[in-house]
């Protein structure tokens, strides 16, 4: 028996959310005596980087070092992970909830005849059956969910588990798989990706601007603060709708759901649909010139003031801290 963890990587490093999934897999294995924790990585990646996955709790890493799997072709990834799952005799698959993770997990549930629970926020409770707690209604509630199948897939919500990097380097085993060409029928023709910036879903701190920022020409104020904090930048829906900011920065019910340690909202009113995307943040700071803005009710700290005055001062104050 073993627990298999599907690892995602970007630009040569394993994603933090995947390391969290490994830590979750390790804790699950310890709690339920579920055997070895095996991580599986697909596509080209440095073995040293992969050995690091051991620090998050993997006993072993299986690396399908096939260039064709570099691109995130959903069907091919699902097929590869299914093969590794079956070969390793696993009973549980753990992965991080993400756009790729969701897509792969869904196909795997059908391939493996497994029960799938998404947005998992805690370890399973096996005192009476097998129950897992998951986040629902976009963070507004939780559901204790009983799982009625032998094979289980758990998609873990980001920042829901503590990442523990206290293990040691894991052995990396290269495996060749024969993936039928029929799994490569979607062709990725090009990718536009902002490089060098902190990715929003992974960011530990996020600074977001709303319509109160008045226009895209003022975003340097948001970016300056974000840079000082090592933060990712986000925005409200109208801001991306008008095209002040790119769509992948849109936070909320219909956009990216973030769960950082610190979320700083500037000139955002705090509509319920925006809050739905940020309610899993550990600490929320709101800067708004209107003391009645609903966002203050969801905030830990607030400043009632004009963003154009407060932001430069705040950036300076953060700088002074260093």
């Amino acid at each position: 028996m073993s627990v298999l963890v599907y690892i995602e990587h970007a630009e040569g490093s394993v994603k933090k959310t995947s390391l969290e999934a490994v830590s979750y897999g390790k804790a699950l294995s310890e709690k339920l005596s579920a055997g070895e924790v095996i991580a599986v990585a697909l596509g080209r990646l440095d073995s040293g980087e992969l050995a690091n996955v051991g620090q998050a709790g993997a006993d072993k890493v299986i690396h399908v070092d096939d260039e064709k799997l570099n691109a995130g072709v959903i069907q091919a990834h699902a097929e590869a992970v299914a093969k590794v799952y079956q070969q390793s005799g696993s009973s549980t698959l753990v992965l991080a909830k993400s756009s790729m993770g969701d897509a792969v997990a869904a196909r795997l549930a059908v391939k493996l005849g497994a029960a799938l629970v998404s947005n998992v926020v805690d370890l399973p409770d096996t005192s009476n059956g097998y129950k897992v707690k998951r986040s629902i209604y976009t963070g507004k509630a939780f559901a204790e969910t009983s799982v009625n199948k032998e094979h289980k897939i758990l998609a873990v919500k980001k920042n829901a588990v503590d990442l523990k990097m206290n293990g040691s380097a894991a052995p990396v085993e290269k495996v060749d798989l024969d993936i039928a060409p029929a799994n490569f029928v979607t062709e990725i023709t090009s990718t536009d990706k902002a490089t060098g910036e902190v990715l929003l879903p992974e960011a530990d701190i996020v600074v977001s601007g709303g319509r109160g920022m008045k226009g895209p020409e003022n975003w340097n104020l948001i970016e300056d603060l974000a840079k000082e904090l090592g933060a990712g930048t986000g925005c409200s829906k109208p801001v991306s709708d008008i095209g002040w900011r790119p769509h992948h920065e849109h936070v909320g019910q219909t956009g990216v759901k973030v769960a950082p340690s610190l979320y700083v909202a500037v000139g955002i009113s705090g509509a319920i649909q925006h809050l739905a995307g940020v309610n899993s943040s550990k600490c929320i700071v709101v800067i708004n010139k209107d003391a009645e803005a609903p966002f203050f009710k969801a905030a830990d700290y607030g400043i009632v003031g004009d963003a154009f005055e407060v932001l430069p001062k705040l950036t300076e104050a953060v700088k002074a801290l260093k």
């Binding site: 756009s99 979607t186 990725i188 090009s190 990718t191 536009d192 992948h248």
Partner: peptide
């Protein structure tokens, strides 16, 4: 397709 930090163009 939206990916973390950008988008990917694809055909099928």
């Amino acid at each position: 397709r939206e990916i973390e930090g950008g988008k990917e163009h694809l055909e099928a």
